[in-house]
Amino acid sequence: MDFAAMADYLPLFEQAMWLTLRIGWVGILGSLAIGLVVAVITHFKIPVLYQVARVYIELFRNTPLLIQLFFMYFALPRVGVPITAEACGMLGLALLGGAYMAETFRSGLEAVDPIQTESALSLGMTPAQVMRYITLPQAVSLSIQSFVANIIFLLKETSVFSAISLMDLMFVAKDLIGLYYKTTECLVMLVVFYLIIILPVSILGSVAERKLRYGAFGS
């Protein structure tokens, strides 16, 4: 193992990590926002929007992210929608994640006992208040495991971003391997950097799960 070379590569990997984190962060927040809206639409079966939401979910869950990214990156500018690679990465992640998050939110909403809604309504809450104060918090705590799994999945999916010339971790690793043939070193660094990104999410996730479980379960 050539540690000197690895030290040389370090700044490049670090830079790439920040790019991955930046896109990942925005993409995940976007996916949560999209997921929440889509889940509420499917939960209440709002006409027309419900059909649109179902098509969206099936389309994005059943096609590879790589294809979605290619489509956005190469096809959108052709129809007059200019988009940078970074924005494309964020949007792609948000749309892919949104479809998964929507299903997670929805199954969480369905898992909340209907009597909770009824007792909240009978306390004079409007349906919107019931959703905000009663159903949604319980849905999130019921499905926290799936949320964490989705976030980890999305962070891992960022590794295809190099395909649309984003200089993320994968891109840097492949680039350096191509230039200097330090394959093992680069791959080890790649693994380490992904762990640096994802491991804290896993750990925070299980902490959150334990905390929420304490508050919300076993009624």
Binding site: E118, L121, P137, F217, S219
Partner: peptide
């Protein structure tokens, strides 16, 4: 209806407290 329901205090058979 939400305002009217405020005047009606309902208690159900099952324990329906908000667990969170």
């Amino acid at each position: 209806i939400a305002q009217i329901r405020q005047k009606l205090g309902m208690v159900f058979q099952s324990y329906d407290l908000f667990p969170h």
